[in-house]
Simulated assay, not measured.
Amino acid sequence: MRVDHVVTSGTFSLDGGTWEVENNVWIVGDDREVVVIDPAHDADEILGGIGDRAVRAILCTHAHDDHISAAEDLANATDARVYLHPADEVLWRMVYPDAEFDPLHEGDTFTVGGGTLVVMHTPGHAPGAVCFHAPDLGVVFTGDTLFAGGPGATGRSYSDFDTIIDSITERLLALPPETVVHTGHGDSTTIGAEAPHRQEWITRGS
């Protein structure tokens, strides 16, 4: 089991604004099979990172449009199912009024490449935000819940600062400090590098 990585470029739109963004797309598995985390912007670029491997699932950390914009095209190209927490359906419908997804919930597991991903519901950035913990690799995929430098943004619709702080504190900071944090945008970090700054985030966000 290993982690491969593609960066795709596009836009994020919500609440009447649009911003240019680059997204991390994580491809987790081995030489035979993978899952794809956060199918952003460009299905062809993601397919190039997958190669000839079978896609067992398409996993979404949340349903902001930049994280799901290639989901339907990637699903059609691979015959893989798209999984999302149902609390984010309102955001999903902004992009896909008619397309369906399979629900995922706290504690669900996905097995691929000889390892396991465990779903952790971490609302705050979005109501259905989740992280995927890969204990076999010592890695957690946090989407936009936790970045190098602090929590994800909570200034737009369907987000809440106190909730994201609770999610990070109760779920993510409880992981071993050496756990590598692979984020939805930008550089990776570790739980140990971020944990000492929790009070700073609270002060900054209050």
Rank of each mutant, 00 (worst) to 15 (best):
A40H: 03
A40M: 10
H41R: 02
H41Y: 04
D42N: 10
A43L: 07
D44Y: 09
D44L: 14
E45K: 15
I46K: 01
L47A: 13
G48C: 14
G49H: 06
I50L: 07
G51V: 12
D52T: 12
R53Q: 04
V55W: 04
V55E: 07
R56V: 10
R56H: 15
A57D: 06
I58N: 00
I58G: 01
L59H: 06
C60I: 02
H62C: 12
H64S: 11
D65L: 08
D65I: 06
H67Y: 05
H67A: 05
H67F: 07
H67G: 01
S69M: 11
A70E: 01
A70M: 05
E72W: 10
E72P: 00
L74Y: 01
A75H: 00
A75K: 00
N76E: 11
A80F: 04
R81K: 11
V82I: 12
V82N: 02
Y83M: 13
Y83Q: 03
H85L: 05
A87E: 12
A87T: 08
E89D: 12
E89F: 04
V90I: 15
V90K: 10
L91T: 00
L91N: 03
R93T: 13
M94V: 05
V95F: 02
Y96A: 10
Y96N: 09
A99M: 13
E100G: 10
F101Y: 14
F101R: 05
D102M: 14
D102S: 15
D102R: 11
P103Q: 15
H105A: 13
H105S: 06
E106N: 13
D108W: 06
T111R: 12
V112N: 06
G113W: 00
G113R: 01
G113N: 06
G115A: 12
V118S: 07
V118G: 03
V119H: 06
M120F: 15
H121A: 14
H121T: 13
H121Q: 15
T122S: 04
T122G: 04
P123L: 08
G124H: 04
H125E: 07
A126N: 09
P127M: 13
G128E: 12
A129T: 12
A129D: 07
V130Q: 03
F132P: 05
F132T: 07
F132G: 02
A134R: 02
A134V: 04
P135D: 05
P135F: 02
D136R: 13
D136E: 12
L137S: 10
V139P: 00
V140A: 14
V140C: 09
F141Q: 02
G143P: 00
G143F: 04
F147E: 01
A148K: 09
A148D: 15
G150Q: 04
R156C: 07
R156K: 13
R156N: 14
R156F: 11
Y158K: 05
Y158D: 04
D160T: 03
D160C: 15
F161G: 07
T163Y: 09
I164G: 03
I165A: 11
I165V: 14
S167L: 12
R171W: 01
L173H: 10
A174S: 15
A174E: 14
P176C: 15
P176D: 13
E178T: 06
E178R: 10
